[in-house]
Nucleic acid binder design. Sequence first.
DNA 1: GTGCTTCGGTTATCGCCGTTACCCCATGGT
DNA 2: ACCATGGGGTAACGGCGATAACCGAAGCAC
Lengths: 210, 210
Amino acid sequence: MSPERPRSPRGEGARLRDEILEAAEALLLETGSEDAVSIRAVADRVGVTPPSIYRHFADKGTLLFEVCDRQFDRFHEYLDAKGSGHADPVEALKATGRAYIEFGLSYPEHYRIMFMGRSDLTPQQYEDHVLAEHESFMALVGSVQECVDAGRIRTDAMEAATLLWTVTHGVTSLLIAKPNFPWPPVEALVEHVLDMVEHGLFTPRPDADV
Amino acid sequence: MSPERPRSPRGEGARLRDEILEAAEALLLETGSEDAVSIRAVADRVGVTPPSIYRHFADKGTLLFEVCDRQFDRFHEYLDAKGSGHADPVEALKATGRAYIEFGLSYPEHYRIMFMGRSDLTPQQYEDHVLAEHESFMALVGSVQECVDAGRIRTDAMEAATLLWTVTHGVTSLLIAKPNFPWPPVEALVEHVLDMVEHGLFTPRPDADV
DNA sequence: GTGCTTCGGTTATCGCCGTTACCCCATGGT
DNA sequence: ACCATGGGGTAACGGCGATAACCGAAGCAC
């Protein structure tokens, strides 16, 4: 883009690192395809030659991972924000679920990389990621535990949190992977899912109501 | 592999087509990675040069799609088999759900391509695929309808089928995408999910039991 | 000021990929 | 005997991720 990129002064070589991250993120958002975010494309956008990328990132996977990791942080903030301030812990959980799906659909390519792709990361990144994942999962477990303490849930917090994650992920990932399937309106689908989670889908007896 | 591949006789040029399909499938199963199934690797395995592949498949996507499409057929047969022969339509549905997850986990790379990847197909393939997908989804709707007719379900068949798909897909795809997450044993997880779908996760009142 | 190190980035290149244009030759029909 | 055609092969293009080797300017010691 800008053919004249000034060389960074001595101490601030890390400045390029940020520019690379932002260029990669912008490219990911604009093209909506991980494949379009090539090392060459990113370098071109920053106004730098491809090998320069490797001064700041070990490989392409590391770069993409870091791009998504940033988004991951915002993801958590968003979930926390949407999940707090509810008097009813069950409502808080449902709000978190809505926010999860909403965020995933807002950044489908990030979600794809983080939760739908093959994660061949370096052991170090992998450890970081597992740690972050575990942390955020445990935040969910905490929210679920409030429901358990209030006697509003039928199982233990770990199990319920796992189920909630799989369900919200199921909606999010299928909507991303199969955008042309004749889905009902997203809001309705989400509410139906939440209703299913809350009350179940089947009636225990043929003649029972609710 | 075999350096001496006899040339196919006149009418049976399509024989190579099958060999290519089987080589690609074997490669996919052995390596467990879509990336490892390169045109060159497949050609090498068959004992043929890369351009020969293009006599039978328009491009790599078409080849991979066809490989997975075969598996898709077996997938449906398996689901049908596991879903039939149940007196209780709800049990039939649960059995189908178990089979879905089991099959997906047995062929994770196929499942990945079919349900978790970016599907950039030609319009023709896409149409075929949508049709097949719609057909199998409608089979599910049929099974659900039996539950509706028996008065065992709280919503309409289309909605319930959509929910069931998203849930089973959620379990399958997360287990595939995050194999190192500290999941509970798969069987237990599946049963918990099915139980959640059946009865719901939350209790309507703090003092209610089941 | 002069020399040296070191940092920020480039040039050139490798090997792999999907894909295409073009050629070749054995076979079967006539 | 001919020759068209189908089943392949040869060579090559452009793009990719990645690496090795280099280079020039900025800072530091003296």
